[in-house]
Design a protein around this nucleic acid. Sequence first.
DNA 1: GAGTGGTCTAGACCACCGG
DNA 2: CGGTGGTCTAGACCACTCG
Lengths: 276, 276
Amino acid sequence: MAGRVSRYTEIADDLRDQIKRGALAPSAQLPTEKELAERWDVSPNTIKKAVNELRQEGLVDTVPQKGSFVAEPAAPFVITLNHTDLGEENAPGRGFGGGEGRAFVAEAERQEHRANSSKPEVQVEDAESVHMKALGITPVPPDQPQPQVVRRSQQRFVDGKPNSLQHSYFKLELAIEAQALLKSADIEEGTVAYLQSRGHVQTGYEDEFNARPPKEEELKFFGLSRGSLAVIEHTRTAYDQRGEPFRLTITVYKPGTNRIRFIAGDVPAEVWERGS
Amino acid sequence: MAGRVSRYTEIADDLRDQIKRGALAPSAQLPTEKELAERWDVSPNTIKKAVNELRQEGLVDTVPQKGSFVAEPAAPFVITLNHTDLGEENAPGRGFGGGEGRAFVAEAERQEHRANSSKPEVQVEDAESVHMKALGITPVPPDQPQPQVVRRSQQRFVDGKPNSLQHSYFKLELAIEAQALLKSADIEEGTVAYLQSRGHVQTGYEDEFNARPPKEEELKFFGLSRGSLAVIEHTRTAYDQRGEPFRLTITVYKPGTNRIRFIAGDVPAEVWERGS
DNA sequence: GAGTGGTCTAGACCACCGG
DNA sequence: CGGTGGTCTAGACCACTCG
């Protein structure tokens, strides 16, 4: 019977079961790999493979020289990407700001979570080709000086825990006419409103979703170890009233603890309210 | 210098580099694990770990008893989830159908891809709690007969290749008053239009995104091996004119070959047109 | 210093694929 | 049949954390 299933699958199934049943409570430490190896009478590598499975499913967090722990049950923080407020039907920016900057904090507060973000790190750098494409920058041959962009990066936290990383890219020319983009400080009125005052009204956007393994930097920020869950990457290209792309925002979410959502048309109020 | 980086990372980096440079062309077979082990003078397990990295990044597909192959470059099929057509501003369903059923095929044709989907598999089954919650079904104690739902599942292909799996769930009562839901056949006019004719007008929906490792069934359908890229799961709960949830659709996409997108407000026409 | 997971070795046997 | 990757062993050393 058990012959059809590999040993490590069997072990992973057992651990998964214990977690789901609650025999292993959230944040509890799993038995050490050595202990598991003895209990199942298998070699350490087999245990590692089993634990690896659970890590990829997001059920377990492994902290390198400490141990593996049952992941906190998705403290579901819901990020609604296409609304900013529940007030006026025609409030400025309604339907156009969610998930970014101050909207992120507001959304959290509505759900009775505490959100904060780091001071933006501002960097001027050579544009990567994806960024150029999105921002409508014409590429130049590799032997010539490359076009540059301004990147504003923030780390975002919910209830003190790492939640997402956000990078916004702007053409350098835009940053020169809207210099707050170059300051490593929050833009008081919000980026959308600020840019609107400088003549770039956000009239629409295009969103894309992707899943990919975390980069080294993201592993560190989220406190994950290698072989963890994939991250969700949300890319928003914002267009102004002339139909020109003027902002590219890439947000990387740790999945499991985030629910990323969109709402269209009429849905019951309690759907909007639903936080956790 | 190389001492700081683990051996398998080094090997993965080298292979990744060869793929990106084109030294290993798409669909070409990688050197066998044995060969790599000899070339790098490491043990087989180290090679496996390196190849595993590339699999998780979607750069390589491994076919168990045959070999590892460079993945085809993402033939990007763009699925726009919130529009059905580019015609009339107020065309029925505009903004409300994208990505589902016939809309999927239409979207593909616009991008000059050929899409088709399998005949729907219809199953009546006990509702899982997450489905009950979404459809607003009140749970009953586990010792009583469980509420049931109708599941309609389709496999979807683009250019003959597996693209996504879609499962739609309906309350059993709804299927009784709208019996086409119970037939294992495409609904000619589209599910949204059909249900509208039965008194359930789709007035809004809520979308959620998640990333998770593929299930066994999905591995098989997508032709992936274990440890591959995460799949993207898109959940749509549709609400009718009374504000009642009446349909739950879960679509599982193989990432890399799909770009999943949303559009809001005004964007230039070429953004809509952008297929590949 | 004891304990943890991360990396790595040098083999082994198996199942499945192709010719 | 030989070749492939999948699984597994029984160790080893290392880097890091914690008390």
